[in-house]
């Protein structure tokens, strides 16, 4: 049986709900800090799948959104590309 603690949130980096919740509760951290501590959102898809879930968990633990800020920063490349593609300007 899979319980909710073992439920995967970030599929790329295989980070569970339990790991995220305990880290968020322990450090009362920002979404960015939660990402850096657990690697959630740092995988192949660039957080496209788990970003909303992570935002919601942080909102639950620390409800103070700054409307002008995106909690998890976007960084190029926003799609998976090879080193060759990024390194070389054609």
């Amino acid at each position: 049986m899979t319980n909710i603690e073992n439920m995967i949130i970030c599929r790329c980096e295989e980070v569970t709900y339990g790991q995220l919740l305990s880290t968020a509760n322990e450090h009362k951290c920002s979404a960015r800090e939660l990402k850096l501590r657990t690697r959630a959102g740092m995988g192949f898809c660039g957080g496209r799948t788990c970003r909303v879930s992570i935002d919601k968990m942080i909102e639950h633990v620390k409800p103070n959104i700054t409307p002008g800020d995106i909690p998890l920063k976007y960084q190029p490349p926003v799609r998976p590309v090879t080193f060759g593609t990024v390194g070389e300007i054609k």
Partner: peptide, 12 residues
């Protein structure tokens, strides 16, 4: 737009 999931145990 993109879709966001609601994770459920066993959703992988």
């Amino acid at each position: 737009a993109a879709e966001y999931p609601i994770p459920v145990p066993g959703w992988t």
